[in-house]
Amino acid sequence: MNAFRFLGDMTHLFSVLVLLLKIYATKTCSGVSRKTQELYLLVFVARYLDLFTDYISLYNSVMKIVFITSSAAIVWYMRRHPQVRRTYDKEQDTFRHSVLVAATFVLALIFNDRFTFREICWAFSIYLEAVAILPQLVLLQRCRNVDNLTGQYVFFLGAYRAFYILNWIYRYFTEGHHSRWIPWIAGLVQTGLYADFFYYYFLSWKNNVKLELPA
């Protein structure tokens, strides 16, 4: 475990917790793509199948449980909570995320480390995480609504990607040149999509600030 990876895990965790807290506190989820949150939950479930079979460390197991429960809580609030679900932009959150699930699953069937159920699910979760932000990106481009996408949320998402890329560079130079092209290529695609998301977030935030300025 190196500092980059630990900080990456912490900022990733904070991004999920900040969103959950925001929805819990304000009881609204306008501007948040439920589809992206459902994809994130699927990413965690598909990747953490080894939660009950392989024990790596207490940290690893605790973090997996926290990631799954907090992302499940966000989906629960947006689907089931009577007050929150009313504020979900159902008509705007129209990205066909089932296409993303199917495409990444086929990709995992073709490109994986081993053709076993666990490895195909692991590769699937890596590919899906890379594109999971797309429904949220489309929703943001369409609505420019950053009410629930707080600056902290976006900051932690960005920090998570930055630290993980530093982690991969660090591991590449210290642990030998294992072929880790699956997380590397998917990670680069994911970072590119996040950069696009940050661009539209900044545009929306800038417009909001202009709107709020006294006329």
Partner: peptide, 10 residues
């Protein structure tokens, strides 16, 4: 399979 590179990461 957590022995495979990258599989110990979250």
């Amino acid at each position: 399979s957590s022995k495979l590179p990258g599989h110990d990461e979250l």
